[in-house]
């Protein structure tokens, strides 16, 4: 039964890793489907992680932290929007610039406010973190490993943000394909001229998309610093924003396949953590560095060859102007 427990724990770890990835990927989905490249995912998430931890530590409430995280990420998103939508700037440059700014700004502010070397204080008070919610009967279910363990370890005991992320996939699919807003959003990423001639504001739609991306990045960042760990540390996103972007491309800019990609990346990540120091048959112990590189190697391989042709929204990356 040892293997079974191991697998359940591995899946539980997958869910934990996948949550911020999925939130960021869906955030990117909204932005990119509207035609705005979202290279700022990493920066928005990191900014939100810092703000959420700082506010939660100061006020003692994780909900204020969440609010601060979302507000920060939305602010950064609007910054990108202002540069790329209003002033037709280069979307790649704007996203990168925001990310680079936040990488430096977070720890600097942290040092000034808390004097802890750029970190935020440990969130150990009650209500300062998002913690797991035990479902009724979870403890009892543990007694009977199959299928009880699946219930107690996977379904039950996750925090609110995980459930939110899970609900987000069908929700966003519904928004994209069943609502007026979704139709217009997809149209503006494909042919903004068509949207403009239909009498709909291209910039208005793109701003809405960018703001939604900000909100979701805010939640993702808050998850990192107040749920997955207890406080902000320097560079804590560790490339998850870019990985989310890769997942979104791998998922061909569609919600459900994007979920699949996120789970796959998260699974390799969880597996890599498990494999550290474990002697495997034939190869023996694999060096830690190699194992940690695994998810990224997988990303490169998948994106380079196995995805097939991913067709991006046609107008992505092109600032809209009436003249062609």
């Amino acid at each position: 039964m040892e293997t079974y427990t191991l697998i359940v724990l591995l899946l539980a770890a997958t869910i934990r890793v996948a949550t911020p990835l999925l939130l960021a990927a869906i955030a990117g989905l909204f932005s990119e489907r509207a035609g705005v490249i979202d290279l700022g995912l990493e920066g928005k998430m990191l900014g939100a992680a810092f703000a959420a931890a700082a506010v939660s530590a100061t006020t003692g409430s994780v909900w204020f932290g969440l609010g601060a995280g979302i507000a920060t990420a939305v602010f950064l998103a609007l910054l990108i929007g202002f540069a790329c939508i209003t002033h037709k700037g280069n979307q790649v440059v704007a996203g990168m610039a925001v990310t680079i700014m936040v990488v430096g700004l977070g720890p600097t502010l942290g040092l000034a406010w808390f004097g802890l070397g750029g970190q935020t204080p440990q969130l150990d008070g009650a209500g300062q973190r998002f913690t797991g919610i035990a479902w009724p009967g979870a403890a009892a279910a543990k007694e009977m490993p199959f299928p009880g363990l699946l219930y107690s370890e996977l379904l039950s005991g996750q925090n609110l943000i995980v459930y939110f992320a899970a609900a987000l996939v069908p929700l966003s699919a519904w928004i994209f394909y069943r609502t007026r807003f979704g139709l217009r959003l997809r149209a503006v990423g494909e042919n903004p001229h068509a949207v403009d001639t239909a009498g709909i504001s291209v910039n208005g739609l793109r701003y809405q998309a960018v703001i939604i991306s900000g909100v979701l990045c805010g939640v993702a960042g808050t998850y990192l610093s107040t749920a997955a760990s207890s406080g902000f540390v320097r560079d804590m996103t560790a490339g998850k924003g870019y990985l989310a972007l890769a997942a979104l491309i791998f998922g061909k800019w569609k919600p459900v396949p994007t979920l699949g990609a996120c789970l796959l990346f998260a699974f390799t990540d969880a597996l890599a953590t498990r494999l550290q120091g474990v002697a495997l048959p034939v190869v023996g112990v694999i060096p830690v560095q190699f194992i940690l590189a695994l998810p990224y190697v997988l990303t490169v391989l998948l994106l380079a060859g196995f995805v097939g042709k991913a067709v991006a929204p046609r107008a992505i990356g092109v600032p809209y102007s009436k003249e062609k």
Binding site: R186, A187, N191, H193, A194, D196
Partner: peptide, 16 residues
Amino acid sequence: MLVENFTVLENVVLGV
């Protein structure tokens, strides 16, 4: 001014 990967119907209703 058409969205190529939309159906005819979707293109016609876009905006109304």
